[in-house]
Amino acid sequence: MTFALAFALLAAQPVTAEPQHAAPQEDLSSVDWEKEFGVEKKVVDPVTGELPVDPYTQDPANAGATPFAGDGMAKAFGGQEGIRKIVGRLVDLSESDPRIAEIFKNQDLVRLRRTLFEQVCYILDAGCTYTGRDMKTAHKDLGTTRADLNALVENLQQAMREAKVPFAAQNRLLAKLAPMDKDVVER
């Protein structure tokens, strides 16, 4: 092992000419490196286009907030169609926001768009249930900070403003989301 490590360290140097060791290289192009390293492959579901997640118990309470009563808030957001647009815009803005874009890289954005839509639709009482994970589980290992959360809030505000959601109604939704900060900020 010591020898292997020493060899590995040597070989890790950027450029080392090793003319003596001119033995023919094994063709490695056909090697399944994910299998060699034990990387678990995730396969996109052909129907939903989503990647699988660890099993969890579905419960609307996972949304992290109790829904509004009545249809006032749903109307203020333009119903399910309006909510879908706002959530889509929020994800688009955040994906291209240099402050937080890195967090969204290599994430299942198909699933994110669906569950985020469900969550907002459920909280606004616009006729959905929430089938996603709870906030703590969904944000596990994302390494998010308070500043990241603030950036996301600003993007959500922009998406709501563009959709002409009245400011007081915007804040009423934010009031439902604000208490979740401890579960979505990791460090």
Binding site: A8, L9, A11, A12, L28, V31
Partner: peptide, 17 residues
């Protein structure tokens, strides 16, 4: 053997970085 050492190279390289 080359495959093994290649793997070790990568692991050691990761460790170094």
């Amino acid at each position: 053997m080359p495959k093994l050492s290649f793997k070790l190279n990568i692991l050691a390289g990761l460790g170094l970085s």
